[in-house]
């Protein structure tokens, strides 16, 4: 075929880039949820990784206990995770808004331990396989590489969700309320908008995104109680690099870092686990507010 690119067979290079793009899709979906939640609640949702895992597990349980397949799970699992989010926000998080933001982080850290510990207790640490839906099995030859259909679908789906969320927040009336309430909740409340309910729904939406990411991830990675616990830390680094300021920034940084991680796997595999953290350190030295962030 084409020979090699920088001494690397193109199959391997594109294969890793695709893997990077897939990882980037999950980074983007998760950091998008984190950014939306942080914007409205000023809470860094440490439980995000656990709720992502929960989404995957709900899909797996739906399939194995009730025989409900992937496409319905794609709708139902985020709703269940979102509903769980409503309960969490109403009963626990809402008590902390007047306190230092760090308490929100500590509370959600505790929640992450509980959710992960409970699933681990129930299902053990070994991963459960989740089959790729029949419609998306197989793959296609793109000439320069082989693309499994399901992976292509994940990239497309996450792009649609990210762009859709961005449009909803930046271009619609509801999004305008949301942004206004982020800037000045008291004033927006005075205009007759139910801000506490908006806060609850924002949290539910953010964690539903995590649940959706979990369902998307289920056929690619094994469904395991620990699948979110490392991911959430990488996503934190992504959020620090991108800066919490903009939705678009969170998404772009997510994809970009996923690709960069894929490239590292090709050229220097030993560093692929830490490259995101190294980049975070460099960005902090050069531009502490993050690539897309505003200095507050």
């Amino acid at each position: 075929m084409m020979g090699t690119i920088f001494g690397i067979p193109p199959q391997a290079l594109f294969g890793q880039l695709l893997l990077g793009l897939i990882n980037g899709s999950f980074y983007a979906l998760l950091s998008l949820g984190l950014a939306v939640i942080f914007g409205m609640l000023n809470v860094i949702n440490f439980a995000h990784g656990a709720l992502y895992m929960m989404g995957a597990f709900v899909a797996w349980l739906l399939l194995n206990q009730l025989g409900i397949g992937y496409w319905w799970a794609l709708l139902v699992a985020p709703l269940i995770v979102g509903a769980f989010g409503v309960v969490l926000e109403k009963t626990l998080l809402s008590r902390l808004y007047k306190l230092d933001h760090l308490y929100g982080l500590l509370l959600t850290f505790g929640l992450a331990l509980i959710v992960e510990g409970a699933f681990r207790h129930q299902y053990g640490v070994s991963g459960q396989p989740y089959p790729i839906p029949a419609e998306l099995s197989g793959g296609r030859n793109l000439g320069f590489m082989f693309l499994p259909n399901y992976r292509g679908w994940v990239v497309v789906a996450s792009l649609i969700v990210c762009i859709g969320t961005w449009i909803a927040i930046e271009k619609t009336k509801l999004g305008a309320y949301l942004r206004a309430a982020t800037e000045n909740p008291v004033l927006v409340q005075a205009f007759g908008i139910n801000v506490p309910r908006m806060v609850t729904l924002t949290y539910a939406f953010g964690v539903a995104l995590a649940g959706l990411a979990g369902v998307l991830a289920a056929p690619i990675y094994q469904v395991s109680p620990l699948m979110g616990s490392h991911l959430i830390i990488v996503v934190f680094a992504v959020v620090v690099i991108g800066g919490m300021g903009s939705i678009l920034g969170a998404v772009l940084t997510g994809y970009g870092l996923g690709l960069l991680e894929g490239l590292t796997k090709v050229f220097y595999p030993e560093a692929s686990n830490i490259v995101v953290f190294v980049i975070m350190a460099v960005v902090l030295m050069v531009k502490p507010a993050g690539l897309f962030g505003r200095e507050r």
Partner: peptide
């Protein structure tokens, strides 16, 4: 009893 769950509950209780 699963340790992380108990630890997590104490965490939540302390914060609240």
């Amino acid at each position: 009893l699963p340790v992380p769950v108990v630890i997590g509950c104490i965490f939540v209780a302390c914060v609240l």
